[in-house]
Amino acid sequence: MKGQLTPYLSFDGNAKQALEFYKDVLGAEITGVQTFGEADYPTPPEAEDRIMHAKLTKGDISLMFSDTFPGQSVVVGNNISLTLEPESEEEIQHLYDALCKGGKPLMELEDTFWGAKYGRVQDSFGIIWELNYQKS
């Protein structure tokens, strides 16, 4: 796997404010922001300005941010997931299958419009994992 585990923080429409807040608190740099409206994804008008994905970095530390899609809710305490970046299709499949045992898939492992294979799983302990294998 590449890098370290990366915390992924979810918000209910205020990810931009949280991103700016943590940038100032940590003295970090915003290294990427994409809204739902900028993505090649069917998006209702009320979600166009919501953050689909943003990244904050300082040295070896990375945090990822996202707003929920309209109709989804954020539950404080369950609004943090962990992201792994496997280095092969075989590795992401193994992780996905292993984490699904006793847990549940939240998003099936599939190819995405951002050029990755991605899946989201809640394991048997309630931890949410985001698996992202970026293809060449």
Rank of each mutant, 00 (worst) to 15 (best):
E108D: 11
S81G: 13
S62L: 15
S81D: 12
T31L: 14
H53P: 05
G119Q: 02
T112E: 03
A47Y: 01
A39P: 00
L63G: 12
F21A: 09
Q34P: 01
S10E: 13
G3W: 11
G3C: 15
V33I: 12
V74D: 05
V75A: 14
P86C: 10
L99G: 00
V121Q: 03
M107K: 01
E85Y: 07
K104V: 13
D123E: 08
F36Q: 02
F69G: 00
L106S: 01
K55R: 08
Q4N: 14
V121A: 06
E89F: 07
W114V: 07
P45H: 08
A98M: 05
K16F: 02
D111L: 02
S62G: 09
S10F: 15
Q34Y: 07
L82I: 14
M64G: 05
N78G: 15
I51A: 06
S73M: 13
V74S: 14
G3T: 12
S66L: 01
Q4I: 05
I128G: 01
C100V: 08
S73R: 15
D111G: 00
T68R: 06
G102E: 06
W129R: 12
Y8S: 00
E29M: 10
W129S: 03
Y41W: 08
L63D: 09
G3P: 09
C100Q: 08
L9A: 12
S81H: 09
M1L: 14
Q72V: 12
I51F: 06
A15C: 02
A47R: 03
Y118N: 06
E108S: 13
Y41R: 07
L84V: 13
T31I: 15
S81E: 08
P70R: 10
L95A: 06
L95P: 03
M52T: 03
S88C: 13
K2N: 14
I51L: 09
N78K: 15
K16H: 10
D60R: 07
E38Y: 07
D111H: 05
I127L: 07
L106P: 00
E90L: 10
Y41V: 11
T112I: 06
M107E: 02
N79W: 03
P7G: 10
Q72E: 13
F11L: 15
V25P: 05
D123A: 10
W129E: 03
